[in-house]
């Protein structure tokens, strides 16, 4: 295995609630893990222990209180906004549980957008988006519609397509198979295996134990990073 693509060490997180008497809540302390190329690491732990918080810190969505989060060559915990934007465009993909898009934009354009941002020609970007939507069994009749009115499973597949359309070297997956039927679950697991095969480093949260067993090479229990345990 080569050099880690995602390397976390000494990572802590606190929330200060200024409007509730300035309460400081420490939710994580001393988190550390690495993900190498072609490796999939699963985060486990009871709900509320900080799996999503950790993922969000890697994505740059939550600020770290202390520690390092190196993705590729960039320490996300210290990076300037423009560096994180560049990282998200080229290096780091994220499939969240929520779909956040401009209303009334066609599904195919939502999926193609990460490629267009990278300067991929419009026809090619749409072609790749359509191929992926078709593989995820999203009915073609839906492609020209906005995903905002789709069912949970359909939105989830649009989200997955958007996350996988550009082959990022690092991927964050938050419950990618939740709310999917068996057939589509199989497609998504296939996509994850292909990403691993091309050398992507994947950090994921999988409540689905079968999926976890199939794609994860290692598991990290976030309970080990709880402030009390440190």
């Amino acid at each position: 295995m080569g050099k880690a693509i995602i390397a976390i060490e000494g990572l802590s997180k606190t929330f200060t609630l200024h409007n509730q008497g300035g309460v400081v809540i420490e939710v994580m302390r001393g988190a550390a893990l690495t993900v190498g190329p072609g490796e999939c690491v699963g985060l486990v732990g009871a709900s509320g222990t900080g799996k999503s918080t950790l993922m969000r810190m890697v994505w740059g969505n939550y600020l770290a209180a202390a520690g390092r989060i190196v993705v590729g060559d960039l320490d996300v915990a210290q990076a300037a906004p423009c560096e994180i934007i560049a990282l998200r465009r080229r290096t780091l993909g994220y499939v969240s549980q929520f779909l956040r898009v401009v209303p009334r934009v066609a599904t195919v354009d939502v999926v193609a957008e990460p490629l267009l941002t990278l300067g991929v020609d419009e026809a090619e970007a749409r072609g790749r988006a359509m191929a992926l939507l078709s593989r995820l069994n999203l009915p073609e009749a839906l492609w020209s519609l906005s995903p905002t009115t789709f069912s949970g499973g359909e939105q989830q597949r649009v989200n997955i397509a958007r996350g996988f359309v550009h082959p990022c070297p690092a991927l964050l997956l938050d419950e990618p198979t939740a709310s999917l039927d068996a057939r589509n679950r199989e497609v998504v697991l296939g996509l994850i295996e292909e990403a691993k095969a091309r050398g992507a480093a994947i950090l994921g949260i999988f409540h689905d134990e079968g999926a976890r067993a199939r794609v994860c090479d290692r598991l990290v229990d976030v309970a080990d990073f709880a402030p009390a345990a440190a």
Binding site: T16, R56, G60, N61, Y62, L63, I85
Partner: peptide
């Protein structure tokens, strides 16, 4: 800061 970071993890 980054838009989603400021909105999702506001510090002030």
């Amino acid at each position: 800061g980054l838009t989603d970071q400021v909105l999702d993890d506001p510090q002030h």
